Amino acid sequence: MRSNSVKWGAALISKNKKQMRRLLQNTNGQILFVSQIVTRHLSSSSASGDAIRRTQKDPRKQQQQTTNIISREDKFGAKYCMGLVEKYDYENYLSTLLLPTELRVSAFALRAFNVEVSRSVGTQLTEPQIAKMRLKFWYDSIDKCFESDTSKSYVKDQPVLRELKRTVGSSKLNKLYLRRLVTARERAPNQAFETLRDLEDYADQTCSSLLHLLVQLSGVQDVQVDHAASHLGKAQGIAMMLRAIPHAGRQQAVCVPLEVLVRHGVSQERILRSEREDKGAEECIFEVASLANTHLKLTRQLLPQMPRIVRKIFLPAVATDGYLERLRRAHFLLTHPSCIKRDSMLPARLFWKTLFNAY
């Protein structure tokens, strides 16, 4: 009896072991199945998460690409303005390179705009109507640059105007000075200056207006600074017009005013020939050059009152003084080689003046 009960107990235990083994197998299978589902779900969710992250990063990449495109356009516009000034206004190009970094790009934009406006009147001798249309274009473009939204205008497609727009947006510039750069060039090339005052006014409208804009870039507001800028602009403008006489055509009037020519009994033809033995022409050039030198001296008398940043802006006085000195040594002969060729020592003298905060 006892042996039968033992056998029955052993059979029950073995049966329970088989059932437990099956249960564990089923349980392990379910656990494995569930773990597979969880793993697939996690992998799919991580993939979708990566996709979501990618979609979230795409706008940043697009924005970064757009920013890179804009920065490339800005760099191209800045380099274009620098190249334009270097090619057509080399002396002012050297002076602008010595400005502080925060002003240099904007200063090149203003000088490039002045170069483009002055180049527009180069066709007045042959095609005056085209010159007027070009001046009208630059005059209207000034208003476009001061508008808040120019995304649909032609400003963004023209590198000089794009840089001018950026300069206007970052600084408080007077629109009047920009307009004077254009309206002053409306003067006919064969129209002579009647008086020295007319010559001064033209130089003031062109060169002085540009200097006033450069001073506004620096943020300096001072009556003495404006006074010095006006004198320097007149001196620089008169010297530049004297320098251009040997390159002027026969149909273009010389910058020597009529009252000076009448006073010395000299014709414009004699000024254009500029012969060494012509004492009358020498006296006319001496009188006009003396006027420029007077304005330059008045500018330098105000040097102690000028802030350091303004002294760097007034560095074009160095080139003006150099030309007037060479003209004096050449006995006011405009066609002398020293008065026509480029000053090779100008970079060194500009750097020297910069070291001593002078102009």
Rank of each mutant, 00 (worst) to 15 (best):
A281K: 04
F332R: 02
L298T: 03
L350G: 06
L334F: 07
R276H: 12
F286S: 12
A281F: 08
R328Y: 13
F351V: 12
L303H: 04
S274V: 09
E269F: 10
P257V: 04
R349E: 02
A281Y: 03
E269M: 13
I313W: 00
A244G: 11
I285E: 07
R311Q: 02
R276I: 11
C284L: 02
S290K: 13
E275F: 04
P257H: 05
L272D: 04
F332P: 02
H295W: 01
H264L: 12
T299N: 01
I313A: 06
G265V: 14
P316D: 08
S290E: 15
M241L: 15
F286A: 12
Q252I: 14
H331A: 14
R243D: 13
C339N: 11
W352C: 06
E325S: 15
K279A: 10
N293K: 11
A348K: 04
M345T: 12
R308E: 06
L296Q: 01
I313T: 02
A239C: 08
A348L: 14
G322E: 04
S338C: 08
L346W: 11
R329G: 04
H295V: 00
R300V: 00
E275Y: 06
A239N: 05
I340N: 12
L258F: 12
F286I: 09
I340D: 06
P257T: 09
V318Y: 04
E259C: 11
F314Y: 01
D278G: 04
T294Y: 05
L324E: 05
V260E: 07
V262G: 08
L298W: 02
L296D: 00
A248V: 01
I271V: 12
L327H: 03
F314M: 01
S274R: 05
A319Y: 05
V262W: 08
E287T: 06
L272W: 10
L291R: 13
V288E: 06
P307G: 09
L298S: 13
S290P: 13
Q301H: 10
N293S: 15
